[in-house]
Design a binder for these strands. Sequence first.
DNA 1: TTGACATAATTAGCCAGCTAACTATAATGT
DNA 2: ACATTATAGTTAGCTGGCTAATTATGTCAA
Lengths: 176, 176
Amino acid sequence: MWLIMLQLRDLPTPEVLQRFAQRYPAADVTAIASFLMLLRVATDLSVALDACLSKHELLQGRWWVLILLMRETDLTSTPSVLAEKLGVTRATMTGLLDGLEQGSLVQRISVPEDRRSVKIRLTAAGQAKLDAVMPDYYTRLRQCMRGLSEQQRNDLQAILGVIDHGMSAWDFNQSI
Amino acid sequence: MWLIMLQLRDLPTPEVLQRFAQRYPAADVTAIASFLMLLRVATDLSVALDACLSKHELLQGRWWVLILLMRETDLTSTPSVLAEKLGVTRATMTGLLDGLEQGSLVQRISVPEDRRSVKIRLTAAGQAKLDAVMPDYYTRLRQCMRGLSEQQRNDLQAILGVIDHGMSAWDFNQSI
DNA sequence: TTGACATAATTAGCCAGCTAACTATAATGT
DNA sequence: ACATTATAGTTAGCTGGCTAATTATGTCAA
């Protein structure tokens, strides 16, 4: 579920793009340029986020779990649901929860009604950790986005929505 | 160079965002919403790319290396420069090149002028591999972006540029 | 010219994701 | 009732990033 991608420090020059487009007629240079820049900025953001969280002794995966729990009105969820929402396997979620429970940021609570299942609850310490981290994170994020007008923020979300929709075509014949 | 991030399948509802903004006054809801969507779409793209490449028995990291080499007019570079351009450590690059050399897609050539250094060259097999992969990749990418007007592609790149610039503020007092 | 430092690449070992296999429990259908 | 199937969570082992240390070579200044 990680945006683990190389940071691609080096975007192609227009000349290089042109050369690729000549060799490969399927190439759409403005699509490629947009795609590469999107990946690069997103990766940079993710790396910056890691750096911010590490100052609070948190890893990105565990932090997202805390946030997902805080989104719930009863501060509670289950490993399966959390894994689904975070886009990781349940095995990975087990590991994330082990780490968080070790730090007493969440607790596992057994569920009598279904003895296969476990409830995960954000502890007071977990909430306190978020209260320490979130203002820092939000402040940085605000700085990061401060150059964007309200119009541009809307545009960005609309554009991303179009890409997201177009992506369903990516896998159109994946099953080869 | 990896965008390794969780897939964040589950974006917060406006109500949840509002609740967070009340608890944390530093929050800027439109900045947060844009940020989360950006991360999600980028991760989805990266995952889709992985799927596309795996059909050609390539991993993303190695594939980017091949592309970086093909960008050079002499199809040649060095491990250090490639690592820099890809945003990975030189240790990681050693591993990527080991894999590529194993598959005969690149070759290491010793450099008499500086015996510490090695030249990496894209082989004919490496070029052939790219010739097989790139049309597939470009076709999918074109599909993915087909919903975006020329205007929107320009807007996207401009917006990403602003974010990229704003990001320098992210680390403004990183050195604690 | 030689000792201190810088640079290129590699190696060894860590870490957090992954898949696949497993245990336990629940649901379903004959 | 009971065998089959599905589901929740975990465990074991793999992978491809990472950092830190290592080897070899080059550079520079006293």
